[in-house]
Design a protein around this nucleic acid. Structure first.
Lengths: 206, 206
DNA sequence: GATTATGTACCGACCGGTTGGTACAGAGCT
DNA sequence: AGCTCTGTACCAACCGGTCGGTACATAATC
């Protein structure tokens, strides 16, 4: 029973967890090292043993978020081979809607927030963020191309362009939900996005 | 020829101009009072003569931005009675695209940036921002309702929902353009948005 | 009309607190 | 002993904000 009932995770993880939590709602600049230290219960010397700067901590967090997003959010929606590609995209929409509901419209999209905060003032973050959004978009493009191949999506549409639009619209929807604090905004946008997809879809579905 | 070739604007305007410029690219937290003071050439004592806090400066800037947006960006696109309502919306899309091009994809949307940065940590800003986005949306809703009335928009669509989606998508498009620094992203999204509108449009258009 | 007050506009020094970051001594394990 | 960790004291720079004071135009007083 030393001091507190702390989780026995290694300090590095503890820092990462705390910082992720804080930066998700307060942003990069809005979260101080001291905040992170207090939240994680880790000393300053220890922090600088694992990270050589706040910037590097930011990179580490972003990398982890990105990995989690790609592997635990994006991939699962597209993994199941028993669904049509367009349905996979719709399923992904729903998973994002659900995550916003669970978070009570707080925090928004970590990557989107960082993009808004740092794109114009920090090239390193900007490049990393561009990479994620590109990979995300590519996943969409891929699915849309498949849909074209199996005839559920009209050949008239450009998968790459449509993918760009879908990602952007989702980010915008998350942002507007974060401001208004009304989950219906997200629901509406997801619904409209599905309609947009249906615009290009042939009647071949279900 | 005293000291420098200064503009003769009142100090308050000078502060507002400088702060707006700085905060548009660096955000609210990323812009310090000293930065604003140096940029505007105004002394600190004078600053606190006009504004009682940095927060109040932020409010003043946002208010001015909002007013400018409503009067000089939104209203003009919808003023001309010689166009159909759907064309007015499309014209507004184009004006946003153009402004992003002029800014070289830097800065993004001032209101969107502030929304992302402060919505979860500052209720005052959140409320003001919700108000602007609502007014923006209402302008869209209004036009869409008119379009329904004159038969260019199908009765099947819900103007309020569609308006929500259009605003959100535009914000997302601006954000993605800011990250990627590629104006084509904005062009693509605007194009897709027009297609989305066309989805609900009857063939009555020109 | 000279003098005394008053209000506005302005400045830069300074304040306490916080920032990101460092130095370093020690603890615990192998 | 020698390595990996960890806590603490400390730093300069910077943060938003306060302070005392100045310059000057106008108004009130005699």
């Amino acid at each position: 029973m030393t001091t507190a009932a702390k989780t026995d995770k290694p300090a590095r993880e503890q820092i990462l967890d705390a910082a992720t939590r804080l930066m998700h709602v307060s942003g990069y600049r809005g979260t101080s090292l001291d905040d992170v230290l207090k939240e994680s219960g880790v000393g300053k010397g220890n922090f600088y043993y694992y990270f050589k700067s706040k910037e590097e901590l930011g990179y580490a967090i972003l990398d982890r978020i990105v990995q989690g997003f790609l592997e635990r959010t994006l991939a699962p929606s597209f993994a199941d081979p028993s669904h049509a590609p367009l349905e996979k995209i719709q399923r992904f929409f729903d998973s994002i809607l659900e995550s916003q509901r669970q978070r009570n419209c707080v925090g928004g999209c970590f990557m989107g927030n960082l993009a808004s905060e740092l794109s114009d003032v920090h090239e390193g973050f900007r490049r990393r963020l561009t990479d994620v959004f590109t990979r995300w978009r590519e996943k969409f493009t891929e699915a849309l191309t498949h849909a074209q191949a199996d005839g559920t999506l009209t050949a008239a549409c450009d998968p790459a362009r449509l993918a760009h639009f879908l990602v952007a619209s989702l980010e915008g929807a998350i942002l507007m939900t974060k401001v208004t604090k009304e989950i219906q905004v997200m629901e509406t946008c997801v619904g409209e996005l599905k309609a947009h997809l249906a615009l290009y879809a042939t009647g071949a579905q279900s």
